[in-house]
Simulated scan of single mutants.
Amino acid sequence: MEGGLIPGLPDDIAAIILASLPISQLWRLRSTSRSWRSALSAPIGLLSSLRRPRDLLCVFPQDPSLAPPYLFDPSTLAWLPLPTIPCSPHSYGLSNFVPIAVGTRLYVVGGSHFDARAYPVDRPVPCAAAYRLDLAAGSPRAWTRLGDLICPRGSFAAVGFGDQIFVAGGGSRHAMFPSDGSRLNSVERLDCRTGRWRTVAAMPRERAGCVGWVSEGETEEELWVAGGYGEYRTVGGVFRADIYCRDVMVMGLRSGRWREIGEMWEEGERRKLGPVAVVEGENGAVPVVFMLDQNGIFRFIVDQNRWVIESTLRRSITDGESCGFVALDGELYVLTPMRQAFDPTDLRRMPNKKVSLDIQIYNPMTKIWKLLSASTPFYSAINFNMAALCTIQI
């Protein structure tokens, strides 16, 4: 393939053809020739001005040091494996970590894991590690270890804003012990340019399992932290039961002051806050926050501090069925694994076919639903109660 990107075609035409390929194929085709490697590797190369940035879904099915995360392109239904994070010889079983994207960089922060150096060995401890993967410079190579969190945590709210990442609340809860774990009220900020964490004003009360987003206030940008659990009560004087938070805490990013907003729903309306997705506004518009509660999608009305029904799913989700809820390119995606025909507890019959995903897509602007299914690279269904999701634009 000497003398041009594609023999017989001008380079500008060939570049348009290459730019239309899925991002997963671009990385694989770099080894075709030197000219393709040069065109497809450089972040400011020939294709950068021709490709329209695409919103991709990043799926972490389990501990990212053991199983690789994947990028999923919903426009082409293509999957691309990413490198695993460095494996520690002392820790294992990482869960409740938070992936978040800032620009074309992907971050994995915190979590809860088991540490062979801790006592007792069979109890999980919060993780302070943070990793970064740059997806702009051609094919992703390896994760970079950043500075540790000042206060180790998992199950926390994480929000990217500019060149910063804010983390709020959290604790030491692990997926294997769903009723245990500590709670935190501390808040930290990561400077993505230096990779260092700084402490900011703490929340008025401890909270874990919460979600967060940034919204424009009257005088400054504000960090909103909602949902999660704080205090707990005992059942029969023995078992702990979480008391879920119905209120919202808001911090001004410039002033650093917190204020508390009243409850978002009445007693008996719902048990806890469901999965939340934020649709970013275009051309400076205010982002819109949506929540998935059973089979309904609710829109958050900021002025009223209430959740209002937006639409209902076209395919119902049964109680206890895991599902993912994310915002991609201005649309809401509800992901549910297709039911498998075999018994996963029967080790004598391992699956020989890859599972598929049911995807329900809702456009808040047009109020139109789309339904599709996509094959996955996994041989077992994704448990979205334990998996971690985020979106990134490349």
Rank of each mutant, 00 (worst) to 15 (best):
P64F: 01
E321C: 11
S215I: 07
L184W: 08
S155N: 12
K272A: 15
I309A: 14
T312D: 09
L184H: 15
D115E: 05
I394L: 15
S95D: 02
C151M: 13
Q164K: 14
D346P: 07
Y92F: 14
G324N: 01
S356T: 03
C127S: 13
D293T: 03
V225H: 10
Y229V: 06
M338I: 06
A142N: 07
T376H: 06
P140H: 02
L389A: 07
C192W: 02
V308N: 07
P287D: 07
T144Y: 01
S112N: 06
P74D: 10
L328N: 04
V279D: 01
A175N: 09
T312P: 00
L313W: 07
F60G: 02
S215V: 12
T345C: 10
E231V: 00
S255C: 07
M291D: 07
P74Y: 01
S31V: 12
I100T: 10
A201N: 12
G162W: 04
I297A: 10
P64T: 08
D73C: 11
A15G: 14
S95R: 09
D247W: 10
D319W: 08
R254E: 14
E310T: 05
G236R: 01
F239P: 01
N352R: 15
G296C: 08
E266F: 03
E331G: 00
V248K: 09
I301W: 04
S373N: 06
A116L: 13
L18R: 04
L26K: 05
F298T: 02
A130F: 09
A137V: 11
F177I: 09
E220V: 04
E260P: 01
S316E: 13
R51I: 14
S380K: 12
I368R: 13
Y119I: 05
C192L: 01
W197C: 06
F239H: 13
E188W: 13
P64I: 03
Y232N: 08
T199K: 15
E188F: 11
D12Y: 12
D343A: 09
I165N: 00
L106K: 00
T234V: 09
A15H: 05
G330K: 05
R271D: 15
T391D: 02
S95W: 06
A158H: 07
R207L: 14
D343N: 15
F166R: 02
F156N: 00
V225Q: 09
S95T: 14
M1N: 08
Y244M: 02
T194V: 03
